[in-house]
Amino acid sequence: MRVLVVEDDRELGAEVAGGLRAVGYAVDLAETLADADLKLAVNGYDCLVLDRILPDGDGLQLLRAQREAGVRVPALMLTALDAVGDKVAGFAEGADDYLVKPFAFAELSARVGALCRRAEHPRQAVVRVGDLEVDTSRKRVRRGGILLSLGAKEFAVLELLVVRAGQVVSRTDLIEHCWDELTDPMSNVVDAVIAQLRRKLGPPIIIGTVRGAGYIVETAA
């Protein structure tokens, strides 16, 4: 899942981005409305974490423009503005959730996770393909009833593949959803993670390769 964090406080932005990356999200950072608008135009996101007080205006301006343009990416307002009127204004402009600073990171992570699961394609909390079970809320994977230990990036890639089981997922899609904008699209990061996943998932191989197209988890696996 890919998240855009719009926060002009560099220390806080880095802390939020680092924490979300540690639990498996791909995160891009923007410090201004203009930068955020550009990133939203170029990239696809599963969740937007948006401050209100930014150098070039109120974050609600960006949210309003996105909603008017038909962009439905779930948005969490993360701001120090805690009056009831501020919260009402946020929801009126299209926010899906509102969290006041200071905040506990565990709560932020849980709220972002809930919004990401809501994005575009509502999904079950637990996805099963054959003997593979992926708990998207608890970020746990079992195969044949055995709990597996996966890294954050491995889980992110597997989650996307099983949610789209039966469909070919290209390397480009995997990079766009599971890595941030700093990743070199020509690198072998996807192939490396797929190899690690196949090793950890064990036989029979559940992640197939479609030459020249991408990877697929067959629904009949």
Rank of each mutant, 00 (worst) to 15 (best):
E154C: 04
E120R: 12
T136F: 00
L161I: 06
V162W: 00
G130L: 10
S149F: 13
D131W: 15
V127H: 12
S149Q: 13
R143T: 01
E159C: 02
V126I: 07
T136V: 04
V162E: 05
E154Q: 09
L158C: 10
G144D: 09
T136S: 05
V157H: 05
A119I: 01
E154N: 04
P122M: 04
Q124D: 07
L160W: 14
L161D: 00
R140P: 10
K153R: 12
S137C: 08
G145H: 14
D131A: 07
V126C: 03
V157S: 03
R128W: 03
V129T: 00
S137F: 04
R128S: 07
V127S: 10
L132M: 01
A125S: 06
L158H: 12
L161A: 05
L161F: 04
K153N: 09
G144F: 00
K153H: 10
V126T: 05
S137Y: 03
E133L: 15
V129Q: 03
E120S: 02
G130H: 07
R128T: 11
V162Y: 02
V162A: 08
G130M: 05
T136G: 04
D135S: 13
R143I: 04
G144E: 09
V126W: 14
L150R: 10
R128V: 13
G145E: 06
L160D: 07
E154A: 08
V127E: 11
G145I: 06
H121L: 08
L132E: 02
T136K: 01
E133S: 15
G144I: 04
D131F: 14
L150F: 05
R123S: 09
G130A: 10
D135E: 12
L148C: 01
V157L: 09
A156G: 00
S149H: 13
V126Y: 12
L148Y: 00
V127G: 09
Q124G: 07
V126G: 02
R142T: 11
L147H: 14
L148G: 00
D131N: 12
G144L: 13
R140F: 15
G144C: 10
D131G: 06
L150C: 07
S149G: 11
S137E: 06
F155W: 06
S137I: 10
V127R: 13
H121Y: 03
L150Q: 09
V141W: 12
L158M: 11
G151A: 13
G145A: 05
A125V: 06
G151L: 15
D135A: 13
L161P: 00
S149T: 14
A152P: 15
A152I: 14
K139Y: 14
Q124F: 06
G145Q: 07
R123F: 07
G130R: 08
L161S: 02
D131L: 15
H121R: 08
L161R: 01
V134H: 05
L132G: 01
F155C: 07
A152N: 12
I146A: 10
L160V: 15
V141G: 11
A125Y: 11
D135L: 15
V127I: 12
V162C: 07
Q124E: 05
L147K: 15
D135W: 11
G130N: 11
E120Q: 04
L161C: 02
K139F: 12
A156S: 10
K139P: 08
G151D: 13
A125M: 09
Q124I: 08
L160N: 08
R138C: 11
L132P: 01
L161K: 02
E154W: 02
